[in-house]
């Protein structure tokens, strides 16, 4: 395939993929019942699903990030979102409320740190417009003087415990943990992707730093598709919709074949 057709292939693939993800995500979001007596359930679950879609489309558009340096940063977040959604769905009313309160409490804590910094600099926090805007944002949802600040994890549990509780231990062990090494830049990641053993025994084959640039790997997109599918499948069960655990993955396979044929046949003309 010529370079020009490869570019067109990728451009069309990215746009179609993003459209497909949005289509499937909003299909589900529109099915989530809205109860204005407990709006936090709908708000949190739909926003998290939208977040999943955003993570997928953002990575899809960043072709240069389709590699083991960068894709896991997104994908691990997607696994985190997936586990969070699964856990919330077990007891949506209480847990979604906890989720909202935690987020607002963290904002409140951040504002207090900001205020303390201003005071240290001899400035008056009451006169800072940014602080006022941030506080107004919180107060619009819950008064700050009635908002507790949780210092531990938002759920009171580790991600691992949340995953086990929802029957997602394999997801945690094989997806969350394996992508975490990229997120945290632990030795088992950087020794493989930012290091290589020296060629010489006289250097004790010591690890030597490097910054290799990788060509885009379409398998990363496949991984993203499967992550979105997993989450959509959660909602299908939650909402008692017909289940299809491979909507986007199957679509992607078909799309790749379609575009491959299209651009190859163009070249053969």
């Amino acid at each position: 395939m010529s370079d020009s057709n490869k570019e067109k292939f990728i451009y069309e693939l990215i746009n179609s993929f993003c459209d497909k993800v949005k289509e499937e995500v909003f299909f589900i979001i529109k099915k989530i019942p809205i109860n204005l007596m407990e709006p936090h359930v709908h708000s949190v679950l739909s926003a998290l699903l939208a977040r999943q879609g955003t993570l997928a489309t953002e990575l899809c558009r960043a072709v240069s990030a389709w590699n083991y340096h960068s894709a896991p940063l997104f994908i691990r977040s997607m696994v985190d979102v997936h586990i969070t959604i699964a856990w919330l769905m077990e007891e949506p009313f209480d847990r979604c409320l906890k989720f909202v309160e935690y987020g607002l409490g963290q904002e409140k804590l951040q504002i207090e740190h900001f205020k303390a910094k201003l005071i240290k600099e001899g400035k008056d926090p009451e006169e800072n417009e940014q602080i006022q805007a941030l506080e107004n944002n919180i107060n619009a949802q819950k008064y700050t003087f009635l908002l507790p600040v949780e210092l531990g994890s938002w759920s009171g549990k580790s991600t691992r415990d949340m995953a086990i509780e929802c029957g997602l231990q394999d997801v945690y062990n094989f997806s969350f943990l394996s992508f975490s090494r990229c997120v945290h830049s632990t030795w088992n990641h950087i020794s493989r992707f930012n290091s290589r053993p020296s060629d010489s025994a006289l250097h004790r084959y010591t690890f030597v730093a490097e910054m290799p640039e990788f060509t885009p790997d379409i398998h990363q997109l496949d991984t993203v598709a499967r992550r979105v599918d997993e989450t959509i499948n959660l909602f299908q069960r939650y909402l008692s919709l017909p289940e299809d655990s491979q909507i986007i993955d199957k679509w992607l396979d078909a799309k790749l074949e379609e575009l491959g044929k299209k651009y190859r046949s163009e070249e053969s003309r």
């Binding site: 590699n67 083991y68 992707f193 020296s198 010489s200 006289l202 250097h203 010591t206 030597v208 730093a209 490097e210 910054m211 290799p212 640039e213 990788f214 060509t215 790997d217």
Partner: peptide, 14 residues
């Protein structure tokens, strides 16, 4: 005697 060299512009298909 044998300084370590760094491959600054390494490209890979990983």
């Amino acid at each position: 005697q044998l300084p370590i060299t760094f491959d600054v512009n390494k490209r890979s298909s990983k």
